[in-house]
Design a protein around this nucleic acid. Structure first.
Lengths: 241, 241
DNA sequence: GGGAGTGTTAAACGTACGTTTAAAACGAAC
DNA sequence: GTTCGTTTTAAACGTACGTTTAACACTCCC
């Protein structure tokens, strides 16, 4: 089988690095492994990217840039269509969730390198990696925060920010290890079916955002929940040590 | 400053390993670093734990065991108090979220090793690590799934499982890198305030679970949302490539 | 007091890592 | 055909890793 229009060595290295990172994490992905997978001499990777950190940054930037633009474009498109009215929760959620999940759907199924990569960077220990991510994320983060504040006027800022973090967390979890979810649910949940995931997430999260707008009915810290449940008899669920 | 009742070497190794894993991930945490931090000879770690994998398993089991029991005990306590009635969403959520977050609150603030550890294992690339985790998680997972099914009769199984995954994902995200959340929100969200986090998560997630019980009004795959939003003019948000 | 068992240590094993070097191969310009 | 800049290569550098070995301390029991 001949090589099907072999791309640049740089591209091959980036692809191999992406795959390796998705599979083994940043610390576990070695340049030797990446170079071998890219059918390239080890020093070639250094010729193009200077160092392992340089390669990692290039890998991230290649995906994060377009992802950021897609995020912003989708959000701006929704806002333009809304003609000044605040967006409904469903639309903001769709703009948050669709671009990363769509990135996954485009992957060639067998190895969802991009998917796992995007999911992984969010929980990556490596401090340097976090710095690379921060700049990209800040702009998107701010845009969505403003959209939410327009959509839910009078909502507590900290509660809004918490909810955004929860959504990102759930998204990252789905992206990070799709096969695990599929196994754990015995096939009932298949992260590859992007539309289903997006729809389910929107359906799940939007009520939680909406109930932030109306009242500021907030469960008191110290006894997290007492709605619809009589005074409890069993051991109290106090927290702090 | 004298050593304050120095614990066993084994315990020191486990503590140091926990700290290192939380900081640098499994791949990044080296036995030499751990042994030095535990003020123990490198070979001592091998004497007690046999190998790096053995140490990692011991680290996980030390925390996951009690965590699992706390999960089950809390859930059983709630169910006993409910006297056969199905639990409200808030209580099931509390039983899911409180034990891991409480583990974090007990940590000595400075280095929340346990917290990050528990958060990290959920997204850890290392395949072996996942196996260690699976057994522990399966039992808790099943218990919560049954509780949800009692609480939300007639709910679609796959949609329920998806929601559980989302909750775990959000929780893992909070546990994994609390400092990042604090920075990103400029201090508005502080994961160290456990009660606030639990309350906010319950308040956020419970409506999404409840709306699963009533109707099975589900957004169609292919056009994730169209509720409360007129026909869109801008480029369609089709997904699959 | 002298083995036996347990805990601890320094030192080394081989391997893999990130990185660098210097030389070879290549392609276009003159 | 030579020259020059770019790309690729093999080989080595030092370091750190996981792991093993063999010797050393320290009980405790007879």
């Amino acid at each position: 089988m001949p090589k099907q229009t072999d791309p640049d060595p740089q591209t091959r290295i980036l692809d191999a690095a992406e795959d390796a990172i998705g599979e083994m994490g940043f610390a576990g992905a070695s340049l030797r492994h990446i170079a071998t997978a890219a059918r390239v001499n080890l020093a070639t990777a250094y010729y193009y990217f200077g160092s392992k950190r340089g390669l990692m940054e290039a890998v991230l930037k290649r995906r994060l840039g377009p992802l950021r633009e897609e995020h912003l474009a989708l959000l701006r498109g929704f806002e333009a269509a809304a003609r000044g009215r605040p967006l409904p929760a469903e639309k903001i959620l769709e703009a948050m969730l669709l671009p990363p999940l769509r990135l996954a759907a485009k992957a060639p199924a067998k190895h969802q390198a991009v998917t796992r990569l995007v999911g992984r960077i969010v929980t990556e220990p490596h401090a340097e990696t976090q710095e690379v991510l921060r700049g990209q994320r800040a702009e998107v983060w701010t845009a969505f925060r403003k959209a939410w504040q327009r959509s839910l006027p009078g909502a507590s800022l900290s509660e809004l920010l918490w909810r955004m973090e929860f959504v990102w967390g759930a998204l990252a979890f789905v992206l990070c290890n799709p096969r695990k979810i599929e196994l754990e649910t015995h096939g009932a949940c298949n992260p590859a079916r992007t539309d289903e995931v997006v729809g389910c997430m929107i359906h799940f999260f939007s009520p939680g955002f909406r109930n932030l707008a109306r009242g500021k009915a907030k469960s008191r810290p110290g006894s997290p929940t007492n709605a619809r449940f009589p005074r409890q008899k069993f051991a109290t669920t106090k927290t702090n040590a």
